[in-house]
Amino acid sequence: MNKKESIKGWEFISSTPDLYTFELDDKVFYSGRKSGLLNAKIGVSTREFATIVQRFQASIYLGKQIKMSCYLKAERETKCQVWLQINDSYDDIIIFNSMDNSIFQGKTDWNYYSIILDVPKESACILFGMQLFGAGKVWVDNFKFEEVSEIISRTNNADRNLSEQPINLDFN
């Protein structure tokens, strides 16, 4: 994967960076004056992708629950999602949620998306972004982070419905 810096604070990563662009758009936005636009050029296959990512220290959210939210708009046959990841001090992933149940495809107007995660005390870094798979064009605007009440359920399902021990290891 190749990386290139194009917009302050954001990192652009792609399997084929020559086939994607990431830029500011001052004509299409949800609010404010600009949005981020991730655009696939003609000829992109469904196996290729591009993502934008930003990272910051987890210190102010340690032991708390956070909600990351944003607005997305898409054109053409787009498959995209936002994602949120929490890493420890070794840069190992502790928690990751990529909205697998909420990936959207096709043309959409501005829609609100959010992810809620617990930030363990051993967290060091929070990463987040938006990913485009294959062809299409997607705008993102108004990322927001906020601490939420413990009453709200997390959007990651990684630790739910797990058995205590491995089962059916011989496939019988």
Rank of each mutant, 00 (worst) to 15 (best):
N156A: 15
N2H: 13
C125D: 00
E23G: 07
T108N: 13
L72T: 09
N87E: 11
S31M: 09
I66K: 03
D91T: 13
S123F: 06
S163G: 06
F29P: 01
D170M: 10
D159W: 09
S15K: 11
P166N: 06
Q81L: 15
N97W: 15
I66L: 10
K41H: 15
C125T: 11
D92N: 11
D170N: 13
M99V: 04
C80P: 02
C70F: 08
G136P: 00
W10C: 08
I93Y: 07
I167Y: 04
L38W: 11
G63K: 05
K64F: 06
F133S: 07
K27C: 08
N172R: 13
A58P: 01
Q85P: 00
S6G: 10
R33F: 05
D25W: 13
G9M: 06
K73N: 09
L127A: 15
E75G: 04
F128W: 13
E164P: 05
D109C: 03
K67H: 04
V119F: 07
I60F: 04
K41Q: 14
Q65E: 06
Y112F: 03
Q57W: 07
F143Q: 00
S89T: 05
L117P: 01
M130Y: 05
D170G: 04
F171L: 10
K64R: 07
D26F: 12
K4F: 10
E150P: 11
L62W: 02
V28I: 15
V140Y: 03
Q54E: 04
T155S: 15
F56Y: 06
T21D: 15
T21L: 14
G134P: 01
R33A: 11
E11P: 00
N2I: 15
K67Q: 05
D100S: 10
E164L: 14
I93N: 14
I103G: 06
L84Q: 12
T46L: 03
K121C: 00
I7D: 07
F143Y: 11
K8C: 10
V44A: 07
S102T: 13
T16W: 07
F29G: 02
A158P: 04
I86F: 08
Y112P: 00
E11Y: 09
V44C: 08
D159L: 11
N97G: 08
D141P: 08
N111C: 03
L169Y: 02
S98C: 03
D25N: 09
E122H: 03
F56A: 05
D25F: 05
V53G: 09
K67T: 05
S35I: 00
C80Y: 09
Y112K: 00
N97D: 15
M68V: 10
L62A: 03
E23T: 12
K8D: 06
L162N: 01
P17R: 09
L117I: 09
N157D: 08
G129F: 04
E164C: 04
Q65A: 07
V148L: 01
R154S: 12
Q65G: 00
M68D: 06
K67N: 02
A158Y: 11
E48S: 11
I86D: 01
V138P: 02
S14D: 05
C125V: 03
E164W: 11
L24V: 05
D170V: 03
S149E: 12
E147A: 10
G129R: 01
I116P: 00
F128T: 12
N2W: 07
G129T: 04
L162D: 00
F128C: 00
I95C: 06
I95R: 14
D100L: 14
I152M: 14
S6P: 10
K73Y: 04
K41W: 11
V140M: 04
I13E: 13
